[in-house]
């Protein structure tokens, strides 16, 4: 039989876990890019990579203090935005998409290359960058029970810090999009030439938006690296960007809380689907005998994909989105 209690426990722990934090930050960045400014960044994972490695390399290789490492990681996000944005932001939207996805793959291949092993740790990745973060952990007991969930001390610390970063990013987004600055980037999303005709320097605004969203992505990489105490290049693969897009669209693009709720729900659904399928295919007399347990990893994505497809049909604006804004003509 299916143990629904276990499904719920797994789901809830994923709802607030490091993955949800990571994808919430990635999607918050994409929300600035795609949701508000209309920039198609298909390489958000590359921003996470430069953030994580910027922090990891400066702390592990050069002994920088953690706070400096975090700042360097964020600065790497800005630099990447400048490098990718300067040649492409004057062109049509698709060029940024092509360049960002290519750049994110190039970055992953370079960091994992054996020629860089001394610097990046190659495929083994970096270690020893998170010691000072672990040393700051005030939760010294091995485990804590919160609302029936058992959470390890270090995890609780990572989750707490992670959600604090998410909350700060949400606050910053909210402050910006309600301001005249936010009005201009929304105008650029609607029609660049109209914004130009009204005296707005479209290129500068796109650059700022790309850099801001890139910093959110870099923070995602930093937080996940510290929370999991691991930093390996192959984690930063292109599909991660699209999971973040799925989270953003699920929650509602162009809404402040859309990406956060979307990321939480995405990981909740994914882990519940996973746990359910594992239970349903295991044991003496499985509920779904025609599925083998090896297929579970793939089938859970099929289920979530099906859910997203239905969502696009019946609620294209996502959970929080405004339908009229998404459908374009306002009718």
């Amino acid at each position: 039989m299916i143990d629904f209690g276990q499904l719920l426990t797994v789901g809830i722990s994923q709802l607030i876990g490091p993955s949800a934090i990571f994808f919430a930050l990635l999607a918050l960045g994409l929300n600035i890019h795609f949701g508000y400014t209309g920039l198609l960044n298909f390489g958000q994972i590359g921003f996470a990579l430069v953030g994580a490695y910027g922090m990891g390399i400066s702390v592990a290789n050069y002994g920088a203090p953690l706070w400096l490492g975090v700042l360097i990681g964020m600065a790497c996000g800005v630099v990447m935005a400048l490098v990718l944005g300067i040649p492409t932001l004057r062109l049509r939207a698709d060029y940024l998409a092509i360049v960002t996805i290519a750049a994110s793959e190039i970055l992953r291949l370079v960091t994992r290359s054996t020629s860089q092993t001394e610097f990046t740790g190659g495929t083994q990745g970096l270690t020893g960058f998170g010691d000072s973060f672990a040393a700051l952990n005030p939760f010294t007991q091995p485990s804590y029970t919160i609302l029936g969930l058992e959470i390890r001390g270090p995890d609780l610390w990572a989750i707490l810090m992670g959600w604090t970063v998410v909350a700060l990013c949400v606050l910053l987004t909210w402050l910006l999009v309600r301001s005249p600055w936010g009005r201009v980037i929304k105008a650029i999303r609607e029609d660049e030439d109209a914004a130009r005709a009204l005296g707005k320097n479209v290129f500068a605004y796109k650059m700022q938006a790309l850099a801001l969203g890139g910093v959110f992505g870099a923070l995602g990489g930093i937080v996940l690296a510290l929370a999991t105490q691991s930093l390996t290049p192959d984690f930063y693969s292109p599909p991660q960007t699209f999971f973040a897009y799925a989270a953003l669209i699920l929650g509602g693009a162009g809404r402040v809380l859309g990406p956060v709720i979307g990321a939480m729900l995405f990981w909740f659904l994914l882990s519940v689907a996973d746990a359910f399928l594992r239970q349903a295919t295991a044991g003496e007399n499985p509920l779904l005998p025609f599925i083998s347990s090896q297929d579970v990893g793939a089938i859970r994505f099929v289920l979530v994909g099906l859910f997203l497809g239905l969502m696009m049909v019946f609620r294209p604006q996502g959970i929080f989105g405004r339908r009229r804004e998404v459908l374009g003509d306002g009718r």
Binding site: K186, E190, D191, A194, A197, L198, G199, R324, D329
Partner: peptide, 21 residues
Amino acid sequence: HRVARRGVVRTFQLTKALAGM
């Protein structure tokens, strides 16, 4: 955008109302 800031402002043949705002 600089031309517009100097006070020479245009409209478009195909109207560019920002539909989502």
